[in-house]
Design a protein around this nucleic acid. Structure first.
Lengths: 253, 253
DNA sequence: CCTAATTTCGTACGATGTACGGAGTTGAAT
DNA sequence: ATTCAACTCCGTACATCGTACGAAATTAGG
């Protein structure tokens, strides 16, 4: 027996395929729309994190009882799926033009911007890759960056995955210190002041010639603050170099 | 007023700095050791995922009451911190030799192996970068891969971060389908059979020239199964190319 | 008006992390 | 030997979570 398609799919595409059922709308009018529910959930998750987004708090924000939310969304998982596609849609993607390097930079910057605006996206990265309309649009836009340069289809996919994945990792590193600061109540600097002594003491029992030197250098560099732009990001430049080298090798073959 | 150092730090380094206090050990002997507690927690998380690791289930596995676990670990967060360092220690790191490319491949493969053996590591990536002894050893080992080739300290850090981050992303993608299959009870193939019709229908309302073609090609390639080795991984090769290009540019300057 | 469809929501159940306090166990001091 | 303080163990309790269930309220079609 084949399984039925997941209802959340229709819900994801509700704007492009608007409820084919011409069924009569009986019963009380819904007080809010699905979009309002998802928007409120996004605002909550943006402010307090995914963990703080509970069905009860969401219902309260919407001015209704806890269980009423389930009239719009089947469960919390579906809600999060809808949230992901919703925030993917609110970004205005710049036209995909320029040379390969600047095009791929656009991909990375869009990804980074999304993850910075909605850090909870990083906690959801492990869900089923639900193809909502905005996710599909985004994927199409990303692929346009590597179209017509000689890459195979699979390579195109891997290339944008590589670049977007790197940007996500940058956002992940940034976000990690934010949540650590919020959960511990200590600034990174305060934490260091409180723990550096103890840490130095225990680490003195072993030899860390490289880690000691490099770790502190990296720490100081980080202390200087992250470049809000993705420019001059070391890793991205290496990745772009590597991709360019590969594309050039295709051309000369 | 300066804050006190976090107690979990001493606990992390318990093996290299073994309880400096010569204080008398009064009271009943602990039934298990901290290592046994952490090992049991790792086994639970490996089998069922981080979410399924509860203090109660852990206590039951250890044959004690729920609250007894708190005699070994202050709270669930500390437990997870200890788990991370524990699994980082059980990997036997190969000697860091060979040319740059093979050295960096070792870094990526070690990271991938860890994330595959303990997928819950990917859910913890956002915590405070607690420096346990095994994390420090790992960092030192990673840095040895890029030592003495002309990179600055910060560049050394960024390079290993780039490579390890990519490997983590590979593991993340693999893990995503595993949890999706477990949570939905549907194989990726079953899911596709159930939803492809509906998905094609809704996607037909828009034009996805690239996403349609590339997505299905990537899907088929994935269907073929992931290479258990990291060799022939497209993204990693591009990254290594890019790093080599950069190192070569340093030499000629 | 009646009825059927729909939304709303109060209550309840089984989880979760963990604060609290007491009971039991042990080594050191008297 | 007795006492005491430290230490481990753990039963209970509380707030919070997702959500199953079913009743109440609301509306449109007949």
């Amino acid at each position: 027996m084949p399984t039925d398609p997941d209802p959340v799919l229709r819900l994801l595409w509700r704007h492009v395929v608007p409820a084919s059922d011409a069924a009569p709308r009986r019963g009380p009018r819904p007080k809010v729309s699905v979009d309002e529910v998802v928007d409120a959930a996004v605002e909550l998750a943006d402010a307090e994190g995914l963990a703080a987004l509970s069905m009860r708090s969401l219902a309260q924000r919407l001015g209704m009882g806890a269980m009423s939310v389930y009239g719009y969304v089947a469960n919390r998982n579906d809600l999060i799926v809808l949230m992901v596609d919703q925030v993917l849609g609110e970004a205005t993607l710049p036209p995909m033009k320029g040379d390969l390097r600047t095009r791929l930079r656009l991909v990375a910057e869009a990804q980074l911007a999304d993850c910075r605006a909605h850090p909870w996206l990083l906690d959801v990265a492990g869900l089923r890759p639900w193809l909502g309309p905005n996710a599909a649009d985004r994927y199409e836009w990303q692929l346009a960056a590597v179209d017509g340069i000689g890459l195979s289809d699979v390579e195109m996919d891997q290339t944008v995955t590589l670049v977007a994945g790197f940007a996500a990792n940058v956002a992940r590193a940034e976000h990690a210190v934010r949540v650590a600061e919020r959960e511990s109540g200590l600034t990174d600097l305060e934490w260091w002041e409180a723990n550096s002594g103890e840490l130095g003491e225990v680490m003195a029992h072993r030899d860390y010639p490289l880690a000691g030197r490099v770790g502190s250098a990296a720490g100081e560099a980080y202390q200087a603050g992250t470049d809000p732009q993705l420019e001059r990001e070391f890793g991205l430049e290496r990745i772009l170099d590597g991709i360019e080298v590969y594309v050039a090798s295709l051309r000369s073959r």
